[in-house]
């Protein structure tokens, strides 16, 4: 018999009886960060290989969601802080060893780039946008646009400097795409590294988490693009990409658990939570079956020319990705070395 317990009644809030210092905010932040990273990755990638004409959803439309996701993610992170008023302290230092720190910085850089990216396609996305008609238009007219019929659209930027910047930005889309691609990969990997940096939690202490979160983020983004696209060929391409990502994800998940089972006692115990323990049902049903296997089957059927609404597998993948992050954050806090 071996029994170890705290007898002086330590009951620190959110620490005892099991650690629960991170709630819904961190998984949501990780999910949105991964989604944004994936969307920007595909936009940058298809620009770099010169296929922006073919993959219009991936390059022009879907990235609109990225800044929205990043801002919502940052709000979630802010809600997690117990002292949000000191939030700016994140930006007074750079601690490369702290994933929280460099993640905050990557978001800081990727946010303006993604916004400019979207803005630079604004004229193309809304060629008939009439600034005299709706509220948004009227508001923009007051601040930043003017009524001046130059190149087809009935509006243009009010300030010369913005016009010049826009022209330059559009000319240099490729180099910008390279920067965005690199930042997107860093952001995607970061969402996994954030957890794996915490050696104290056996479940998170695995180098597989980085690539696994990156793959999962890319696959949620591919699902979103697939869902939004109305071009048949683009849909097919992203269906294929998604299928490939799902296979990689299944491989990484297997690898993750095999690694745990071959590891120290604490890691074997961590894996047990998923192989018979508390999280078994939630994990295998929501993440593996609903989030990976069923969409993979549906997508294969679709590629074999069966007619299916693409929305179904896409929604399942997004659901699986979200639940995956919730479970990882939740279960990681339960696993421990002592007591």
């Amino acid at each position: 018999m071996r029994e170890e317990l705290i007898t002086s009644g330590r009951m620190n809030l959110n620490i005892d009886p099991v650690l629960h210092i991170w709630h819904w905010q961190i998984p949501v932040y990780l999910f949105l960060g991964g989604l944004a990273a994936g969307l920007l990755f595909f936009a940058a990638y298809y620009t770099i290989i010169g296929k922006e004409k073919k993959f219009t959803t991936a390059v022009k439309f879907a990235p609109v969601l990225a800044p929205v996701a990043i801002i919502l993610g940052l709000i979630a992170l802010l809600l997690d802080l117990k002292h949000p008023a000191y939030f700016w302290q994140l930006y007074t230092t750079v601690h490369l060893e702290s994933p929280m720190s460099w993640g905050a910085w990557v978001l800081m850089f990727i946010m303006p780039i993604s916004m400019l990216w979207v803005a630079s396609y604004f004229k193309e996305i809304f060629p008939k946008f009439d600034i005299n008609q709706n509220i948004v238009g009227k508001m923009l007219k007051k601040v930043i646009v003017k009524n001046d019929n130059k190149e087809g659209a009935n509006w243009d930027w009010k300030f010369e400097i913005i016009r010049k910047f826009e022209i330059n930005f559009i000319k240099n889309r490729k180099p910008v795409a390279w920067v965005m691609l690199i930042l997107a990969v860093i952001l995607g990997v970061y969402t996994g590294i954030l957890l794996s940096a915490f050696n104290a939690r056996p479940l998170w202490n695995s180098s597989i988490l980085g690539p696994l979160f990156l793959t999962s983020g890319l696959s949620t983004a591919a699902a979103t693009i697939m869902w939004m696209s109305d071009n048949h060929e683009e849909k097919r391409t992203f269906s294929k990409i998604d299928l490939m990502l799902i296979v990689i994800e299944l491989f990484l998940i297997t690898h993750l658990f095999m690694g745990f089972l071959a590891g120290s006692e604490a890691k074997v115990q961590a894996a047990q939570y998923f192989l018979g323990g508390e999280f078994t049902v939630t994990f295998w049903i929501n993440v593996v079956i609903i989030g990976l296997i069923v969409p993979a089957i549906l997508e294969t059927l679709e590629l074999l020319k069966f007619k299916l609404p693409v929305m179904v597998p896409a929604a399942m993948i997004l659901w699986g990705g979200m639940i995956f992050r919730f479970i990882m954050v939740e279960a990681g806090q339960v696993t421990r070395f002592l007591y």
Binding site: I15, L19, K82, Y86, F198, N199, Q333, F337, L338
Partner: peptide
């Protein structure tokens, strides 16, 4: 205390659970 934003990263990284979140947010 004045520099702590209460992100909880240090709490996650301590294998002994030796840290706690003070009600004042640090």
């Amino acid at each position: 205390h004045e520099e702590c934003i209460g992100c909880g990263a240090c709490i996650q990284s301590c294998p002994y659970d030796a840290r706690y979140m003070h009600p004042d947010g640090y």
